[in-house]
Design a protein around this nucleic acid. Sequence first.
DNA 1: CCCCTATAGTTGTACTTGCAACCAGATGCT
DNA 2: AGCATCTGGTTGCAAGTACAACTATAGGGG
Lengths: 148, 148
Amino acid sequence: MMSSHQETTVTAWARLMRAQQSLLARVEADLKKSGLPPLRWYDVLLELNRAGSTGLRQYELGAQLLLSKYNLSRLIDRLQKERLVDRQACAEDGRGARVRITDTGLDLLRRMWPVYRAAIGEHFARHFSDRQLEQLGFLLGRVPGVGA
Amino acid sequence: MMSSHQETTVTAWARLMRAQQSLLARVEADLKKSGLPPLRWYDVLLELNRAGSTGLRQYELGAQLLLSKYNLSRLIDRLQKERLVDRQACAEDGRGARVRITDTGLDLLRRMWPVYRAAIGEHFARHFSDRQLEQLGFLLGRVPGVGA
DNA sequence: CCCCTATAGTTGTACTTGCAACCAGATGCT
DNA sequence: AGCATCTGGTTGCAAGTACAACTATAGGGG
């Protein structure tokens, strides 16, 4: 049966929104069941870990994670309160802070990963072949700001 | 170059999360620029419109849109305050309400669609061929709770 | 050097979401 | 019928998010 371009578009769009929402909810639920903090925390810690000992400026983190600056400012506050990250004045720019992961943060990152990985496998990857996962990754990479 | 199953999985997962987040933000921004309410409102109105004159129970709406009941309860409150939907006591179940779209709601639905459609085209569909949109829709349909 | 504008980040406030406790009507068991 | 349990829906309160206004430093002319 033939589908119009419009129908094809709307189906793909609706499924993209729905799939993400559904998967995110399931994975978050698994993390919570294990007594772990939300995924956002993981994202931040992961980026900071990748950045190494020099850490990242908040605006870099915001660009990476698609978070607004006010949102991020308070998110970092929370992480800092838990001693998962630290902020230090930035030498080359007196306005900004440089955010780094702490040992406690690194530890949390490492404790979260197994649960996170298992949840991704269970709720997501399990339902696809390797070939399909590759296709999906390729296709989603075409969305502006996502690929590479 | 060879990629491990793990890498393939994580790439697809990360891109799915990122693509949805990015696209949703862009489309919401377009709606706001046109002085229109958030997408969630559209989703609710669309479902109610599909349901026709008998409307829907809140729990049906919640299942359809993956919204928790408390969340939905207050969302409907807001829509009702704007006279976009109405609630009426449910005959066959004294606990529940039946929610229906109003004429005002239908009007809003119709005013939102052109903007929404254009945003989907501009930010999403434009970057894919028809064949790719079909593939993407198919693949995302394999996620539990999404397909058909 | 001074002024203008732009950028990094924070904060007040309103709004939205999440959780847990709750109310009321339905269902089921004896 | 009588009681326990379940389900649909609401609500108080805590936590998170959005927007706008703000502070402070940076950078780019004149």
